[in-house]
């Protein structure tokens, strides 16, 4: 699992590549959680995440909690059908802004 950071139009684009399971999600949390601050603008690019277990959900939950109630913004882009299914049955889908690709995600953050 690799994480790359990139700033596009003042939005921090965090690209995750690889599986998010219990062996990799803690490393992703370590890198991403410090960035999820009040006022942040983040696009989480997940089109290269073929697999996500409950460990990935936990990470999303922590990100959500850090920015909710603040004016921070996090969008998720490029989720596979399977990742969306997992988020849907656990009631996560409704709480995140989800876009099919980075372009459409970035267009909504300003």
């Amino acid at each position: 699992m690799e994480i790359n950071l990139n700033v596009i139009n003042q939005v921090t684009v965090i690209t995750i590549a690889g599986n998010l399971d219990s062996s990799t999600a803690p490393k992703a949390e370590e890198k991403i959680l410090p960035l999820a601050r009040p006022g942040c603008k983040i696009a989480l690019e997940m089109s290269h995440v073929p697999y996500m277990s409950s460990a990935g959900l936990r990470m999303l939950l922590l990100i959500y909690r850090q920015i909710s109630g603040s004016d921070g913004q996090v969008v998720l882009v490029g989720l596979s059908e399977e990742l969306k299914d997992t988020m849907a049955v656990t009631g996560f889908l409704d709480f995140f802004q989800i876009y099919p690709n980075l372009e459409s995600g970035l267009a909504t953050i300003i």
């Binding site: 277990s53 409950s54 909710s68 109630g69 709480f95």
Partner: peptide
Amino acid sequence: LHCSLEKRKIGGFGIYLALK
């Protein structure tokens, strides 16, 4: 699972997903 993410317990999704 119907609650807002702010009120959720962290964890407990694993076995739920295993059985789902």
